[in-house]
């Protein structure tokens, strides 16, 4: 599998990064094309919006904007939601409450699972299609692309919404991270390669000397999508992912 190249069509993309990161970001294409504004989600009524955690808000914001950009219907796409840490910060706060012998908030508990954001997206958009929730360490975005490819092999006429998102890891687990990344969310609307005007090819191979990536893989990919390079190699902790633009 490692040497196989897979192809995906890209219909649209939307990336949000925490506002404070704009000044320190040294990738011009990423800075120019990503959204660094505070999230409002005015398209969701307040009575429903209150259910969204900080993390779900990021995922919802880029998912809805990405689908809107392609003038597609949010109820019809298959979805792959990928997050390395998921609701880590919320889980820490639940464990902390339990440790202090306080009762755990039912809302926090019900939204602490890894697929909470995917579930909320499906409820808000009345999407009854298949959805997958993925976590795969620093390769999370890469495996989300592979899962999207699998879905498109099975349902070639469908579109797949891939949303890869994470909050900055907070204390105390922040101390265990090799590098702290900003909160971000990237959404791509993917199709079979022959049904979109542009797309990407990707292949990957294991890498033995461990690296600490400068950026989450999804953000490095988004920069590549908009810069002038025709190919890029993005290394994660243990894998080298190669991408080629197909125009």
């Amino acid at each position: 599998m490692h040497n196989k190249t897979i192809k995906l069509g890209v219909l649209s993309s939307y990336c949000w990064i925490a506002p404070g990161y704009k000044e320190s970001c040294n990738l011009p294409s990423l800075t120019e094309h990503a959204d660094f504004d505070p999230i409002t989600l005015k398209q969701i009524p307040p009575i429903k919006r209150r259910r969204l955690s900080g993390l779900s808000k990021l995922a919802m914001h880029t998912s809805l904007n990405c689908i809107e950009q392609a003038a597609s219907s949010p109820a019809d796409c298959l979805s792959v939601f990928a997050s390395q840490h998921g609701e880590l910060n919320r889980t820490v706060s639940i464990v902390d409450s339990m440790y202090q012998e306080h009762e755990v908030s039912p809302k926090d508990f019900s939204l602490s699972v890894h697929n909470a954001s995917l579930g909320l997206f499906s409820i808000f958009t009345r999407n009854k299609q298949a959805g997958t929730s993925i976590a795969a360490g620093s390769d999370t975005f890469g495996y989300a692309l592979l899962e999207s490819y699998n879905l498109l092999q099975r349902f070639p006429e469908k579109q797949v919404l891939l949303t890869c998102f994470d909050l900055e890891v907070s204390h105390p687990l922040s101390e265990l991270q090799n590098k702290l990344y900003p909160s971000y969310s990237l959404s791509l609307l993917l199709t079979s390669p022959n049904t979109a005007p542009s797309g990407i090819s990707l292949s990957f191979e294991p890498q033995s000397n461990l690296q600490v990536p400068e950026l989450p893989m999804a953000l490095a990919f988004y920069d590549f999508l908009y810069n002038k390079a025709s190919t890029v190699a993005i290394t994660t902790d243990d894998t080298r992912w190669k991408f080629i633009k197909n125009v």
Partner: peptide, 17 residues
């Protein structure tokens, strides 16, 4: 008001406290 079952649990906890 349109509250649901999770609201009921959350409100119950707040009232208890």
């Amino acid at each position: 008001l349109g509250l649901d079952s999770i609201d009921a649990l959350e409100l119950g906890l707040a009232i208890k406290k």
